[in-house]
Amino acid sequence: MNALQKAKASIQHLTDLLYSTSTARTVFQAKRLPPLPAPRATTAYIAGKGMVQVRDADTGRVLGFRQTHKEAAWLQQALENGTHPHATA
């Protein structure tokens, strides 16, 4: 096998890898869940010393943790207004 045949085989192998990567990316994008809507209302629960949970009032799903009640209130306001980076309207 000469150098040209080895190069051709290497290029074919790389082409196959790129195709496989593209296919995997497409499948992954199809499986991604849609973003969750911004909560209508949130509540803060003291979950221990230095831990306040922010929960969705309707579902009870935990949306975040903060160390103080003041920081939790800021998070609640940002989530309800849709200004938090992870909140979607």
Results as ranks from 00 to 15, higher is better:
Tyr45Cys: 06
Gly50Thr: 01
Gln67Cys: 07
Gln5Met: 09
Ala89Met: 02
Tyr45Ala: 09
Val52Lys: 02
Lys31Cys: 05
Ala89Gly: 07
Thr21Phe: 12
Gln12Asp: 10
Ala44Glu: 11
Trp74Ser: 01
Ala30Glu: 15
Ala87Ser: 02
Lys8Asp: 10
Leu17His: 08
Ala44Gly: 06
Arg61Pro: 01
Gly64Thr: 03
Leu14Ile: 06
Glu80His: 06
Thr23Pro: 13
Gln67His: 13
Arg40Met: 07
Leu36Lys: 15
Ala7Cys: 10
Glu71Pro: 01
Ser22Ala: 12
Tyr19Glu: 09
Ala89Tyr: 08
Gly48Ala: 06
Pro35Gln: 02
Thr43Lys: 09
Lys6Glu: 05
Lys70Glu: 13
Ala87Thr: 01
Gln5Leu: 07
Phe28Ile: 07
Gln12Cys: 06
Thr68Val: 08
Gly48Asp: 01
Ala9Val: 12
Pro85Lys: 07
Ser20Arg: 00
Leu79Cys: 04
Gly82Thr: 00
Leu36Gln: 15
Thr21Ser: 10
Pro35Gly: 00
Lys31Thr: 06
Arg61Asn: 13
Asn2Phe: 01
Pro39Ala: 06
Leu4Asn: 15
Ala30Pro: 05
Ala30Asn: 15
Leu75Cys: 02
Phe65Ala: 05
Ala44Phe: 04
Ala57Arg: 10
Gln5Arg: 12
Ala41Thr: 03
Lys8Ala: 09
Lys49Asn: 14
Pro39Gly: 00
Thr42Gln: 04
Leu79Glu: 03
Thr88Leu: 01
Lys8Gln: 12
Thr21Trp: 12
Ile11Thr: 14
Leu75Lys: 03
Lys49Cys: 02
Ser20Glu: 04
Ala7Lys: 14
Arg32Gln: 10
Gln77Thr: 04
Gly64Ile: 06
Asp56Arg: 09
Val62Cys: 05
